[in-house]
Design a protein around this nucleic acid. Structure first.
Length: 527
RNA sequence: GGGCCGUUAGCUCAGUUUGGUAGAGCAACGGACUUUUAAUCCGUAGGUCGAAGGUUCGACUCCUUCACGGCUCACCA
């Protein structure tokens, strides 16, 4: 894989890959590079989850392409975090309320199907990621801590707790500094994490003393006093320290994060240095915004979910959208789906004629498994056209739409896979987003009589055998007979019969849906 | 208060790494197909590249300052 080495591919995953190459140094190329991405399992996976794994994967593939080196992607779930508040979109809120402050991995599954709360969420995450064919190793905090994966790092943290406090405390509000500890012991009596306070450190014994008496939301500590080992899951460490611990223990070389985590990443960098480790190559990305430019938040329900997007458009289009410059905040809303899909299809058409060098900088190369699975597409059919067509046909079957398109472009059959998805999604989009906004105009008196003429002509013997051309000229004849500009009658057909400003060529349309259907449309409007 | 991003055509964005008098798509407008209407083709118009200063023979591009819009952080991962 040396062919690409001298070429400066400029798409951002390659820019990132070059950063990693520089970062690991000449000796690093022979070692496996570890990419990481982390998730909080307190909720269901969402678009940010998708974006983070996708982007990390793109950089990973670019790095592999440039170096031929081996890589791994660790997907890490923070299931040892305590439940901080009861999510309002989950069942059994009362049960969850009673478990506030306990590790997510030790709380029953509110859906009742998995072994724990976090088990359910991790299962969903896995399902979600597998849908898109991502390659990753799933790990969880509960396993990692309890298996002792982090023990070496935890020892170092305890031995250097003074230095860590020195770094973290100045970043806290005055009133929170007193008594703050990077360690959260799980109370051996009530199993809560956030109600314990560390009262003493014992680096030689590898333990901490604690008392479980702190208030946490609606709950308060049980009053238990004890000593916990920092090893094997006896304590969990606080967020920024946790991040450093993971980097240290797994030898993470690359991780992406939202820009809200920049300060956290800086602190974690300092902490891992105290531990004697090397911080990974970090990359922050901008947030997703809704149509009003506000940050997308699941709890507020603004913006778009992955599920919604996939209902109306193929997954490739979402990947295509997310691919664009991660350093630029992106507005994400459903109304931009048609444009995004069309742009994606445009790229697909152009991809065929690109040389290898250009292809590597195409978003399609990246989003389709490093160029391994870019579909062929040469038709001019796009999402906008499908939408117009579906709209004109009035919620048709997939078959009917395909038939219509074949008339327009005989090539369509060659790309049936792409086109069929397009049509299916287009129909869903039409039903949910266009149909509710249709406006049927009442016809004028003149138009009424024109429609009557049209209906009469279409009902005449032999009309059902008319060709597209004959049907088309029928409209002209009828209009001219009454001294009406033909274009006005066409406009009336779209606005009165179909409830839209524009539409397909009448002859083709009538031929496909059948003369009888046109008559029905006229009848339906009470003409 | 700290950090960050953005500002280029009506809209959505390329172009900035490696300086050489601005591009695409859509929208608009005009035309062609002896019938403008899912379309296609040809063409036209549209930008003091947020502002000012600096470096340079030359700046959208590099440097400095500022303005505007927005995001984010202070233990919540």
């Amino acid at each position: 894989m040396n062919t690409g080495k001298k070429i400066n591919y400029k798409s951002w995953p390659f820019t990132e890959a070059r950063r990693i190459i520089k970062f690991v140094g000449p000796g690093g190329l022979s070692r496996e590079v570890v990419f990481q991405t982390g998730f909080g399992p307190s909720g269901l996976p969402h678009i940010g989850t998708f974006a983070e794994v996708a982007r990390t994967t793109w950089v990973r593939r670019a790095y592999e392409k440039l170096t031929g080196a081996k890589t791994r992607l660790i997907a890490f779930s923070d299931d040892l975090d305590g439940l901080r508040k009861v999510p309002d979109n989950l069942p059994k809120p009362e049960m969850l309320r009673q478990n506030l402050g306990k590790p997510l991995s030790d709380i029953p599954d509110p859906y009742g199907c998995c072994e724990s709360f976090s088990g359910h969420m991790i299962g969903k995450l896995k399902e979600f990621l597998d849908t898109f064919g991502f390659d990753y190793e799933l790990r969880s905090a509960s396993q990692a801590y309890r298996n002792g994966d982090f023990n070496e790092g935890l020892k170092l943290l305890l031995r250097n707790v003074d230095k860590i406090l020195e770094i973290i405390l100045p970043t806290l509000k005055e009133e929170n500094r007193e008594g703050w500890s990077p360690f959260f012991p799980a109370c051996e009596s009530c199993n809560r994490l956030y109600t314990t306070r560390v009262t003493g450190y014992h680096p030689d014994e590898l333990t901490v003393d604690y008392v479980c008496d702190a208030p946490f939301g609606e709950v308060i500590g049980c009053g238990h006093q004890g000593t916990a080992s920092v090893l094997d899951g006896g304590v969990k460490v606080g967020w920024k320290v946790d991040w450093a611990l993971r980097w240290f223990s797994y030898g993470v070389n690359y991780e992406m994060y939202g820009k809200d985590l920049i300060p956290s990443a800086e602190l974690s960098n300092k902490i891992i240095r105290i531990m004697g480790g090397t911080p990974p190559c970090g990359f922050f990305y901008e947030m997703f915004l809704d149509e009003n430019g506000e940050k997308i938040s699941k709890s507020r329900g603004n913006g778009v979910s992955v599920e919604e997007w996939l209902e109306y458009a193929p997954v490739e289009s979402l990947a295509y959208f997310i691919f664009r410059d991660p350093r630029q905040a992106k507005k994400l809303h459903l109304d931009m789906i048609p444009r995004t899909v069309d742009e994606y299809l445009d790229n697909l058409r152009r991809y065929r004629d690109m040389d290898e060098v250009k292809r590597l900088d195409s978003p399609l190369w990246h989003i389709h498994e490093a160029g391994a699975s870019v579909p062929e597409y040469g038709s001019t059919i796009n999402f906008t056209m499908v939408n117009n067509l579906v709209s004109a046909l009035g919620n048709p079957e997939v078959e009917l739409v395909r038939g219509f398109m074949t008339r327009y472009d005989t090539e369509v059959a060659k790309y049936s896979e792409v086109v069929d998805t397009l049509v299916k999604k287009g129909i869903a989009y039409y039903n949910d987003r266009i149909l509710p906004n249709k406006k049927y105009r009442e016809p004028t008196d003149v138009e009424k009589s024109l429609f009557e003429d049209l209906k009469e002509a279409l009902s005449a013997p032999g009309a059902s055998e008319m060709s597209e051309k004959e049907l088309q000229s029928l409209v002209f004849d009828i209009a001219r007979e009454k001294d009406v500009e033909p274009k006005n009658l066409f406009a009336a057909i779209y606005q009165v019969l179909l409830g839209q400003e524009r539409g397909p060529r009448f002859g083709t349309f009538a031929r496909l849906v059948g003369v009888q259907r046109v008559i029905e449309l006229i009848d339906e409007r009470g003409l």
